[in-house]
């Protein structure tokens, strides 16, 4: 049963998630297309990460004490920029430049372009092994920050993910938290059809990780999972497997098939925003 403070926190984070979804849709509208389905599906996780769990200073994205968030799935940049805007790291008016020439917000995330973007993701399967190195480095420096590696379920196909999974457990990296977005969709179709990955929780556990699997669109579950991962004292890496629904919050996008990279007709962007606004208005 939720306590009143839990309810308040959830309501606050629901508001953040709503705004992240809205920012992502507005960026999608700039280009008329994009990885909007993923952004809508992952917004709740990003809201909890950036507006609840992580230590950060919006005016100093390189603050040494910050928790590191690695966007391994670089194509989720549209979702991530929305979270950076919501966290106050990127100004809102910059979203109109998304994917445009000379923008700080390229279609695929790159460290050298965007404040708060820790790595150049997009060559999938690179985030987790980089996170291993950063976690080793932080530990050697005596810096208590966490490293979050955010990745897609498609990246479970990459061998480097499992090299890193072994390495992180071998080195006892309790400062490493891996977030996996399981929306069961990759370029060629459902991830489970492209390269089956179940039983996923058992796989990670057998690699020596602390595992949680939760509904990534249930804010109370997402909050609890982050809190648990951070509070553990065991010297082992932690993974949170988030089952999410692509297009979450916009029913006609939730229902759209083959929605890895979606094209949305011009009038539909406003329809999608209206649906989000209406739902959030009702929730308030």
């Amino acid at each position: 049963m939720n306590t009143p403070s839990d309810t308040g926190l959830q309501a606050k984070l629901a508001e953040h998630a709503y705004r992240i979804r809205r920012f992502a849709l507005r960026m999608g509208e700039v280009q008329g297309q994009g990885y909007v389905g993923q952004a809508l599906g992952y917004a709740d996780v990003l809201a909890v990460a950036y507006c609840h769990a992580m230590q950060l200073r919006p005016d100093d994205p390189q603050w040494e004490g910050r928790d590191r968030f690695l966007l391994s799935h670089g194509h989720y940049a549209i979702a991530f920029y929305a979270a950076l805007i919501e966290a106050g790291i990127i100004p809102e008016d910059e979203l109109d430049t998304y994917g445009s020439d000379d923008s700080r917000l390229p279609m695929s995330g790159m460290a050298t372009y965007t404040p708060g973007m820790e790595i150049s993701g997009g060559s999938l399967g690179q985030g987790l092994p980089i996170a291993v190195g950063m976690a080793l480095g932080l530990r050697l420096k005596g810096n208590p920050a966490f490293v979050y590696n955010s990745m897609s379920d498609g990246e479970l196909d990459e061998g480097s993910t499992w090299e890193a999974a072994m390495g992180a457990a071998h080195h006892g990296l309790g400062n490493l938290i891996c977030l996996v977005d399981i929306n069961n969709q990759q370029a060629d179709g459902p991830s489970s059809k492209v390269m089956g990955f179940e039983p996923l929780a058992d796989k990670w556990a057998s690699f020596g990780w602390h595992v949680q699997r939760v509904d990534g669109n249930d804010l109370s579950a997402v909050i609890a999972a982050f809190d648990t991962a951070r509070a553990l004292t065991e010297a082992k890496p932690r993974v949170i497997l988030f089952d999410t629904l692509m297009g979450k919050g916009v029913p006609f996008l939730e229902a759209r098939e083959k929605n890895h990279f979606i094209r949305v007709d011009p009038p539909e962007w406003q329809q999608a925003l209206d649906i989000l606004d209406h739902a959030q208005g009702a929730a308030r």
């Binding site: 820790e118 190195g133 480095g137 050697l140 890193a164």
Partner: peptide, 27 residues
């Protein structure tokens, strides 16, 4: 304490070296 065995995993080796460099070390 400054030596890190990455196992027979060269992708991890290179990426982790990059990660340590990002934290200010010279791998």
């Amino acid at each position: 304490e400054r030596f890190f065995q990455m196992g027979m995993a060269e992708q991890l080796l290179m990426a982790a070296a990059g990660g340590m460099a990002k934290e200010g070390f010279m791998p």
